[in-house]
Design a protein around this nucleic acid. Sequence first.
RNA 1: GGGGGUGUAGCUCAAUUGGUUAGAGCGCUGCCCUGUCACGGCAGAGGUUACGGGUUCGAGCCCCGCCACUCCCGCCA
Length: 599
Amino acid sequence: MKRTHHCNELRPSHIGQIVTLTGWVHSRRDLGGLIFIDIRDREGRTQTVFDPSDLPKELFEKAAALRSECVVSITGKVRQRPAGTNNSKIPTGEVEVMTQSLEVLNMAEPLPFQIDDPEAAAKVAEETRLQYRYLDLRRPEMARNLKLRSKVAIATRQFMDEQGFLEVETPTLFKSTPEGAREFLVPNRREPGTFYALPQSPQQFKQILMVGGIEKYFQLARCYRDEDLRADRQPEFTQVDIEMSFIEREDIYNLIEGLLQRVWKTALGMDIPTPFKRLRFEEALNRYGIDKPDTRFGMELVDFTEEFKASTFKVFSGAIANGGVVKALNAKGLASATQGQIETMTEYAKSFGAKGLAFIKVENGEWKSPIVKFFSDAEKAALTSKLKIEEGDLILFAADQWLNACEILGKIRLYCADVLKGQGKLTIDPNRFDFLWVVDFPLLGFDREQSRWYSSHHPFTAPVAEDISFLKTDPKRVRGQHYDVVVNGVELGGGSIRIHQPEVQKTVFEDVLQISPEETKLRFGYMLDAFKYGAPPHGGIALGFDRLIAILCNTPSIRDVIAFPKTAKGVDLMTDSPTTVSSKQLRELYLEVKAQKKE
RNA sequence: GGGGGUGUAGCUCAAUUGGUUAGAGCGCUGCCCUGUCACGGCAGAGGUUACGGGUUCGAGCCCCGCCACUCCCGCCA
């Protein structure tokens, strides 16, 4: 049965050889007196021919009984196809295998969906594809995605090894750490009422590894977060997790730029330029209204706070008087926006707490807008020159506190780009990758509801050295040594230089985050202990591996690059998990289910 | 938790304003076919219109509820 070649291997140079191919019946073309069967494996497909004139009747009938996706082993002689019958669509299209023997390894029932026609298969509902994932995975597109994923994983390991990193595995049965994402819990049979938690990331272990003298660690780590899902979020996902000792931010930038260079070369054969651009958090917000800007198109935000400070238009001047700003963006060529599109954008603005959305449509040489009558000539002139206003443009405004105004227009900028793409007025080269680092994030944010500070990244992020003195006096002003790597508006990963002095870490936990000393000891005591015994300065980063692969495969959903993903409600449609468990299992774990069963 | 979209044959989709027996392509079954490659031809089977109610003389279509999938907001240190 052993195959001699795979199904994408035979070429004219093989003519005359006796070969054995194994694989699936991709398609069968039964001409009555002559049968063609395309046999397919992971690598490709090859045409085999059944000619009754030199085959036993029984064998020919066996071939006639085959249907799509039966598993077969076919032995025969490779020959040149007759003149004029070459198939230029497939690489093996110059030759065919004259069958001498056929072994049916397994029959196949009619399929729930067809997988031989790529166009039809791509349209099948994802629900059906996930239920029969083993069939879906046979499609060349899915096979390509998994192959690319494997290649990138191996390239990553190779690169990290070359750079002197050790791959270290960390536990997936971890301790519950209530900060951050909701965790999956695992009940402990040995002690009633105690639980492990699955790690949201190996963050604490990798820092401890630095204290353990590993110096350079990496891992393709599985992480678990029990939060609501999105196209780019699964309950379990993979990170390229990295940590290094005796380094500064620049070392991480260098390393990751090299890694991504290697990955892009391996996966796409592309040379990406380094170093990547750097954008301070503040600048990213000012220009793009988001901390992960897509810089493949312009439409940048422009500030008009000075120009409207004394405006008679109170919505603007009032916002400024309250310490806010006025910002605008020019959606080039979008004056044709429909009522519905303006409505959608207004909803965005309102969801950020704005009262409405001011806009100007520039049509027929006229500014059509409910607010333009309030503008002075000087204000109009400023708008025209700073926004480079031309016929057909749509100008959108936000007047609010700085962060809010930026974020509103950031959201609207992306929406406008989508609309313009749909109208063909904006095209982006699919082979363009705009990498950049976003740096100088604020270390802390303020939660108005709970009236306390929280870590904008995580509590182990080191403050920028010259800002440490403001930790207690002016927390807002403290910048973190945190960095995000962004490509085409997607956050690929992020990390930071960590705190390695126990006193600074204690200050952050107790004075800034207001976690009580007892609580700190309970949750992070072992880390503070570890830091007492000679912790090297260290830092690291984690890249979203699934997102990385999705970008390389040019697919919007990470489900397309995960072999067995879950639905938006966390269900595996193939195995139908999660399920209830027996009362015996529950008893063993000292658990009782109190929720009412759904009918 | 909230908002939007989708759900009709195994698959992909139609079905005018609420109006006859819910159609087509692919797949499936049977027959024919010796150079096809999405083979072709003829014939046929296949439907709880996701599910449960309601309005109506009459519902795939309207209303209410509910389920699944999906996109987004919240959430994701």
